[in-house]
Amino acid sequence: MDFVKADDMLGPYFTSEIAAYQDAIGKSGRDMVLSLSPGRVLSLAHLERLRSNAQMWRVSDDLWDNWDDVEAQFARLARWAPHQRPGTWADADMLPLGRIAHRAERGPERLTRLTADEQRTMMTLWCMARSPLMLGCDLPSSPPETLELLTNADLLDVPKASRNNRELLRDGDLVLWAAESTTTADRFAAVFNTGGETLEAAFPLGDLGLGERASWDAWSAVEAWSREDARPGTAASGSVSPASGLPGGVLQCAVPPHGVRFYRFS
């Protein structure tokens, strides 16, 4: 056995039972991952105890394929992301993508009810927060679009090798996250729109963690879902050119409802 999932352990927090699981694993003579859930009332006060006894712990109740469940994870992951470290991970729950409810625990068998933008938002948020990525679907009968979501190389580099993952800004429907690569000089930024209308946003590059005087002379950027060049004035970016009066060190984007723009800066 390699993976043990212990349910109903965190709300309330069952201190002695969790320690007993870890004690039994320790006596087994081999490594196993202990995953604890659920965690809707899980407090950071338990952080050191969790790190000592488990490798994963859920930070919410069961997550399903509806926007309210996804949106609720923003605040939770903003609290937990700064505390992620190798071997001990706050878990935002499985990804309800593709064909789910194969045996219909809740609702009929179906393709996920999340829109394409909501699916990209969920994948991006989970990666930026370095949540474990576990798939909650029947993969063989899921559409090709599901595989495209799961194989975005730029996005997957964030959970593989990044640091300083954090929420930088929350202003109404606008949420901004940033992170830094640990293997290159690259930086990552995700602009989320949790509202129901398209959102226009503009950020000085310095506000994205690229340095106080960062400019497009020093950085290039690609929006990883569309593969568009993000530099102002480029044909693909849809951005306003510097000649319009915007300074050269500004990222400008339009984010669809419940959507995201994810940028890799090099």
Score class of each variant (00 low, 15 high):
2 D>P: 06
133 L>P: 04
214 A>S: 09
90 A>W: 02
16 S>P: 06
116 A>D: 14
70 V>R: 03
158 V>Q: 01
226 S>A: 15
136 G>F: 07
203 F>T: 00
187 R>P: 01
42 L>T: 06
128 M>H: 06
205 L>A: 02
139 L>H: 12
150 L>Q: 02
153 A>V: 12
20 A>P: 05
209 G>N: 07
168 L>D: 06
208 L>A: 03
220 S>Y: 13
237 S>L: 03
96 P>G: 06
241 S>L: 12
103 R>Q: 11
244 S>H: 13
162 S>F: 03
124 T>S: 02
79 R>E: 13
52 S>H: 11
118 E>R: 06
176 L>W: 03
126 W>H: 12
38 P>L: 00
124 T>P: 00
76 R>H: 07
79 R>V: 13
151 T>W: 10
58 R>C: 06
160 K>A: 12
241 S>G: 15
113 R>N: 11
19 A>D: 10
262 F>M: 09
15 T>C: 08
67 W>C: 15
210 L>T: 04
91 D>H: 13
9 M>S: 06
184 T>M: 04
75 A>W: 05
74 F>K: 05
147 L>R: 15
240 V>Q: 10
43 S>C: 10
130 R>D: 05
224 A>N: 01
180 E>A: 10
121 T>P: 00
89 W>Y: 14
140 P>Q: 07
160 K>S: 15
134 M>L: 13
204 P>D: 08
252 Q>I: 09
229 D>H: 14
31 D>I: 08
220 S>P: 00
145 E>W: 07
167 E>R: 05
58 R>D: 02
154 D>Y: 12
173 D>V: 15
264 R>H: 06
98 G>Q: 01
164 N>A: 15
265 F>H: 04
5 K>T: 15
265 F>S: 02
99 R>L: 13
6 A>R: 04
4 V>S: 03
25 I>K: 02
241 S>E: 12
188 F>C: 01
248 G>V: 11
48 E>C: 07
132 P>C: 14
33 V>S: 00
77 L>C: 09
129 A>S: 14
206 G>D: 08
221 A>H: 00
112 T>P: 04
178 A>V: 15
73 Q>M: 15
196 G>Q: 12
103 R>D: 07
72 A>G: 11
66 N>M: 10
98 G>Y: 04
178 A>W: 05
185 A>S: 12
171 D>S: 14
232 P>N: 13
43 S>L: 08
229 D>K: 12
36 L>Y: 00
168 L>I: 12
69 D>Y: 03
19 A>H: 14
249 G>T: 04
167 E>F: 00
37 S>D: 01
245 G>T: 09
258 H>K: 09
8 D>L: 11
54 A>L: 03
184 T>V: 07
107 G>K: 07
144 P>S: 06
226 S>H: 11
113 R>L: 12
60 S>L: 01
237 S>I: 00
47 L>M: 09
74 F>S: 07
55 Q>G: 04
149 L>C: 08
179 A>K: 03
263 Y>K: 02
43 S>M: 08
191 V>Y: 01
223 E>I: 05
200 E>S: 09
78 A>D: 05
99 R>H: 10
158 V>A: 01
173 D>K: 09
156 L>W: 06
91 D>Q: 01
132 P>R: 09
161 A>V: 04
48 E>K: 13
82 P>D: 15
64 W>V: 05
139 L>C: 12
237 S>H: 04
96 P>V: 11
198 T>A: 08
244 S>P: 11
68 D>V: 11
29 G>F: 13
185 A>Q: 15
51 R>I: 08
66 N>I: 14
69 D>N: 10
